[in-house]
């Protein structure tokens, strides 16, 4: 029986796991949980009621960082966590900055537009936070093809899904071109979208994002 990821590719947390699986050459089947992610059945898998959940035989895991680490250990191809202290930081920092300062405000703006925000969102503050997060990301990106340098790493699992959210929400809220004045990020985005592990995920997210914003895709929560 193969690996199953419960959730939907539009979730940036699920998308990063799919990029990781693609990079590792591990097959995963993405399945949308029946009835969403707040049903008693789903809460049995993940009491937090969040996607993604990974099922590998009897092993059930949630939290994208844990799932990415698990997938990383599944095959020897493309280790996603470098070993030396310097390389660990070069890959880890852009991943952490994306996770903590880019993905959050971009998702807030997305939920505001979609009408699914649980807490009030101030679009000006969220837009400013997103721009600041992108500035720090620009500073932490390596110069190579990948975010951590010459090889694909955990950073390349985290950044592209966040940039899908950032490009769409920046357009909607008229925040301007997010790549203007951020040359490393611009070059990175252009290159990474051609990567075999990343392209199918970004394409699928973009298609689903359009549906979600047009009100054709009800949320799973």
């Amino acid at each position: 029986m193969g690996l199953i990821l419960y959730g939907r590719i539009l979730s940036p947390f699920l998308a990063r796991c799919v990029i990781a699986a693609n990079a590792k050459g591990v097959a995963v089947d993405v399945q949308v949980p029946k009835g969403g992610i707040k049903t008693p059945e789903f809460l049995k898998l993940n009491p937090l009621g969040l996607m993604p959940v990974l099922k590998d035989g009897r092993t059930v895991l949630y939290e994208s960082a844990a799932i990415v680490a698990y997938l990383d250990a599944k095959s020897r191809k493309n280790p996603l966590r470098p070993k030396t202290p310097k390389a660990v930081v070069q890959a880890g920092l852009p991943a952490a900055v994306t996770d903590n300062y880019v993905q959050g405000p971009a998702a807030d703006l997305f939920r505001l537009k979609r009408g699914t925000a649980k807490n009030p969102v101030d679009p000006k503050a969220a837009g400013a936070a997103l721009m600041k997060g992108l500035d720090v990301l620009e500073q932490t990106l390596a110069k190579g093809k990948y975010a951590g340098g010459a090889k694909i790493s955990v950073a390349d699992c985290y950044i592209p899904p966040a940039l899908v959210f950032a490009t769409h929400t920046a357009a909607i809220f008229a925040l301007g071109d997010i790549f203007a004045g951020r040359p490393k990020l611009a070059k990175y985005w252009k290159g990474i979208q051609k990567d075999k592990a990343v392209k199918p995920v970004v394409d699928a997210m973009n298609a689903m994002m359009a549906d979600a914003l047009a009100g054709r895709l009800p949320p799973l929560y």
Binding site: T59, L61, E63, A65, A66, I67, A69, Y70, A73, K74
Partner: peptide, 8 residues
């Protein structure tokens, strides 16, 4: 690997 992921 499973224990490491669980710890995370």
């Amino acid at each position: 690997a499973k224990d490491a992921a669980s710890a995370r």
